[in-house]
Amino acid sequence: MVRDPTSFLPQGLSFRFVDRVLELVPGERVVALKNVTANDPHLQDHFPGHPLMPGVLLVESMAQTAGLLLPEGSSAFLAQIKEARFRAPVIPGDQLRIEAVRRGGLSDLHRFEVAALVNGTPAAEAEIVLAVVRANAGDRP
């Protein structure tokens, strides 16, 4: 059985914002799903009685999706978020389709264009740069 690609993400389950990978071309493009549900602890207080997925968590979801394009076992940090736009509220019951495409890089930095869609309509988009942490990072001064 093929291992679920999201299991390669370094984040623990409580901070994982990708539910399923639909398409994955390593190093090039990935399409993933994130289901938004009312009993998500982040939504219970954001806001009481008016659950709304926080924009920063949309970005986290997009960054984690982009991270699936990095070599297996990589750890990476957010290095840059550019041109982030939030076009529509994301609420319980919505299914996010997150599409990330790699658009170049230099050394340990990788640039991605990422969009999150609900029912085919863009809810959020951003250009995201991830910095891969090298295995010997701890040895550097």
Binding site: R103, G105, L106, L109, R111
Partner: peptide, 10 residues
Amino acid sequence: DSIDALELVL
């Protein structure tokens, strides 16, 4: 910095 370098390279 290195992020500027990436921007310039692109």
